[in-house]
């Protein structure tokens, strides 16, 4: 093979390292599996588990008022929240396992769970 003549010994090592990086990147990117349900918590306790396959809308009462959460087309979002800064509402749709919207002032959170438990976050 003529092309192989241009590969020096260290090049194989670099290519192998690259292949290793590729191999590691797949499970890291898809570690959390498929989104299955949304877990709604209030005050740290599970309030409801919503099946993502069924569109619905629930109201969660909290200390400030009612937080409304909606499931639609395998996604979930916080539709309305009485909190002052609206971070969880502005986060929009959640669709990947591990994604979470936290309405801290009203003590409500909604998180997507997959078929496997993932890490909350990874830093490199």
């Amino acid at each position: 093979m003529r092309w192989l003549d241009f590969v020096r010994p260290g090049d194989w090592a670099v290519a192998a390292a690259g292949a290793g990086l590729v191999a590691v990147s797949f499970p890291l990117a898809f570690q959390a599996g498929v989104a299955e349900k949304a877990v709604v918590k209030r005050g740290g306790e599970v309030f409801a588990e919503l099946d993502l396959g069924r569109d619905r809308r629930i109201d969660v009462p909290g200390p400030l008022g009612t937080t409304t959460i909606a499931v639609e087309r395998r996604r979930v979002r916080v539709v309305a929240d009485p909190g002052p800064r609206q971070y969880c509402v502005r986060q929009g749709w959640l669709e990947r396992p591990g994604e979470i919207a936290i309405c801290a002032p009203n003590q409500v959170s909604v998180q997507i769970k997959g078929n496997r438990e993932a890490y909350d976050s990874l830093s490199y």
Partner: peptide, 18 residues
């Protein structure tokens, strides 16, 4: 700056691509 005897354009190219 890697030693040329061991690392050539193929190494450079892979590293640069990443």
């Amino acid at each position: 700056r890697l030693p040329r005897r061991w690392f050539g354009p193929v190494s450079w190219s892979i590293l640069a691509a990443f």
